[in-house]
Design a protein around this nucleic acid. Structure first.
Length: 452
RNA sequence: GGCGACGUGGCGGAGUGGCUACGCAGCGGCCUGCAAAGCCGCGUACACCGGUUCGAUUCCGGUCGUCGCCUCCA
């Protein structure tokens, strides 16, 4: 196992991964709130942490990846009430959770080891809130429970903010009940129009947004697990609050390393539902294919913003096609030792804060060199592509359309024309095929059709 | 306003105190009946102004600009 460096938001520095349990790495990645279909931006953390897991497994670690699904939330109530006719919020949440699973399944990266739901973690949530109240880090008011931010001396450490700079706090309803504007809700009393609620010692209601993650992460991974991930828009307040809750309730840090991915951008702005510049994941997958999308994601470093555009996806598609073409020239088996340096660079890049673009450059270097020895073993490439979630490029494109009989007839006619050196007719038939969307590729073993 | 990140060749996107990132596009060549695909080759780009240094795209200061968070957000 080589040393693995990861950038930790809290320490604002690269740190060496030193698992709590030797040989095992535990990761909790914040997933979506399911009140609608997810967009491509939401897929970035899913891809990043799925691939990080693959890399760590390759390095010999036993990895547990947890990705939660938030299925109770104001947004869900709003969305359920906004449908005509209004539907039960639990129904909408479960439908959207299923859609989320289906959409991310199509990324072809497998599932996280555990995908807990907030609504199935209510008891641990209530217990955790109870401990916070006992320790005077939280207080109940009229059925709500608020976290006393100023009780936590370390508050702000993760997001590097001073309390003075946070004079606003959570606004809106509940503001009047808070002892300090900075305090945030752990539990919200049931209100009119809210159709999901659970009984708790301080009244019937449902959990606030941040507490569920503290509870779910602790339930599955235990306190002090290795890596907590999510989009960098969650650093404050979500992760700051999660960290504070666990710190005050358990006297220990929730996670050792806080890892955050950058935002996908569209038209110079973060892609977000609130901005309205979203492209649904399902649509992008359908349009460009999962190979192109995954390659697009790994083409940029996870911490940097990444510019989403048709051009970028088209480039990724072309690049994926060429990698596949290169891979097709190889045979199963050991790779030439002379190429090992490229493979080492590939994994060294990933060990250095999961630098996928640099790894990709090494992969291209490997492919460029292997071109000189056709029929070489593909072992190295299999390893590299698998870690990037692109092992599908080792096989012919299964999503490729198959030519219909009409196209095949034209192709046969062209072959016949070529056999008699009737180039004019052959070229005209090739143009006809192009008009039908087929590109002709002449090769040693005859002509083939490829969808344009 | 506060905090943070960033400004790299046509586009995307790494990285480094002096040495080719890489990809896509483009150009030239090989191959081909001609093409396509594939292969080979080709780009002294690092916002601006100062400073440190033998030497800065890389370090420091400033200017301009962009993005993120500070409210729901992956």
């Amino acid at each position: 196992m080589r040393p693995i460096q990861i950038y930790d938001t809290r320490r604002a520095a690269l740190v060496t991964l030193e698992p709590r349990d030797p040989g095992k790495v535990s990761i909790y990645a914040c997933g979506p709130t399911v009140y609608g279909r997810i967009h491509v931006g939401n897929a970035r953390p899913f891809v990043v942490y799925s691939l990080l897991k693959r890399f760590l497994v390759h390095e010999g670690y036993e990895v547990t990846l947890v990705a939660n699904i938030t299925d109770v939330n104001d947004k869900i109530y709003e969305a359920a009430n906004g449908v005509d006719p209004p539907q039960p919020s639990a129904l909408l949440a479960s439908a959207m959770a299923a859609a989320y699973i289906a959409d991310t399944d199509r990324l072809g990266l497998g599932r996280p080891d555990s995908e807990p739901l907030a609504t199935e973690t209510i008891d641990p949530i209530i217990d955790l809130i109870g401990v916070l109240i006992e320790r005077d880090a939280a207080y109940a008011v009229e059925g709500d429970v608020y976290f006393r931010v100023r009780s936590d001396e370390a508050y702000g450490e993760l997001s590097h903010r001073s309390l003075d700079a946070l004079d606003q706090g959570e606004g809106g309803e509940g503001a009047a009940l808070k002892q300090d504007p900075l305090d945030f809700a752990l539990w919200k009393a049931q209100k009119a129009g809210e159709d999901t609620a659970w009984d708790a010692p301080w009244g019937r209601g449902r959990p606030g947004w941040h507490i569920e993650c503290s509870a779910m992460a602790e339930e599955i991974l235990g306190v002090g697990f290795d890596i907590h991930g999510g989009g960098n828009d969650l650093v404050f307040p979500h992760h700051e609050n999660e960290a504070a809750q666990t710190r005050m309730a358990r006297g220990q840090e929730l996670a050792q390393i806080w890892m955050h991915n950058g935002m996908l951008q569209l038209d110079g702005e973060k892609m977000a539902k609130s901005v309205g510049n979203i492209e649904s994941l399902a649509l992008v997958l359908e349009r460009w294919g999962r190979d192109a999308l995954v390659l697009f994601f790994v083409s940029g470093h996870y911490r940097q913003p990444l510019l989403f555009s048709d051009q970028a996806l088209k480039q990724a598609q072309t690049s994926a096609r060429r990698i596949r073409a290169g891979a097709a020239l190889l045979t199963d088996g050991h790779s030439p030792p002379g190429l090992a340096a490229h493979r080492e660079q590939f994994f060294a890049a990933l060990a250095d804060d999961f630098n996928t673009p640099r790894a990709l450059a090494a992969l291209h270097g490997w492919l460029a060199d292997v071109a000189a020895s056709p029929g070489a073993g593909n072992d190295d490439l299999v390893q590299m592509l698998t870690v990037l979630g692109l092992e599908s490029l080792l096989a012919p494109d299964v999503s490729a359309e198959q030519p219909d009989d009409a196209a095949l007839e034209l192709l046969a006619a062209r072959e016949a024309a070529r056999a008699t050196n009737d180039w004019e007719l052959a070229d005209s038939l090739r143009d006809q095929l192009a008009a039908l969307g087929w590109e002709v590729r002449d090769g040693k073993d005859g002509a083939k059709l490829v969808a344009l």
